[in-house]
Deep mutational scan, measured.
Amino acid sequence: TEEFVRLWREAVRHNQTLHWNGTDFIPGDEWAEEFARREEEKL
Rank of each mutant, 00 (worst) to 15 (best):
G22V: 02
A32G: 04
W8F: 02
E3F: 06
L18H: 01
E2W: 14
V5D: 05
R13V: 11
E33A: 06
W31T: 07
D29Y: 04
R13A: 15
A11N: 01
H19T: 12
D24W: 13
V12P: 00
W20Q: 01
E34T: 10
L18G: 00
E2S: 13
R6V: 08
E39R: 05
P27T: 02
W8G: 00
Q16V: 14
F25E: 00
E3L: 12
A32N: 02
E3Q: 10
L43I: 09
L18A: 03
V12C: 05
E41D: 11
H14L: 15
T1F: 10
R38Y: 08
A32M: 03
D24F: 13
V5R: 03
Q16Y: 13
H14V: 12
G22A: 06
E3A: 10
L7K: 09
E2N: 09
L7I: 04
R6L: 11
K42E: 04
E41M: 14
A32Q: 01
V12R: 08
E40W: 13
A11S: 07
W31M: 09
E30S: 14
T17D: 02
F25N: 01
L43C: 13
F25R: 00
K42R: 12
R13I: 13
W8N: 00
N15I: 03
E10S: 03
F4G: 00
E40V: 13
P27S: 02
E39T: 15
L43F: 10
A36T: 03
E40R: 06
T1K: 07
R13T: 12
F25H: 08
R38M: 12
F4L: 01
G28Y: 02
E41R: 12
E39I: 14
A32T: 03
R37I: 06
A36I: 06
V5N: 05
L18R: 00
R6K: 13
R13P: 00
K42N: 07
E30R: 13
E40F: 14
N15Q: 12
H19S: 11
I26F: 09
A11R: 00
E3Y: 07
D29H: 08
V12G: 01
A32I: 04
R37H: 07
W8I: 00
E33C: 09
E39L: 15
E39G: 04
F4D: 02
D29V: 10
Q16P: 01
E41A: 14
N15H: 09
V12W: 05
N15A: 09
V12H: 06
E33M: 09
D24I: 14
H14G: 10
P27K: 02
V12T: 08
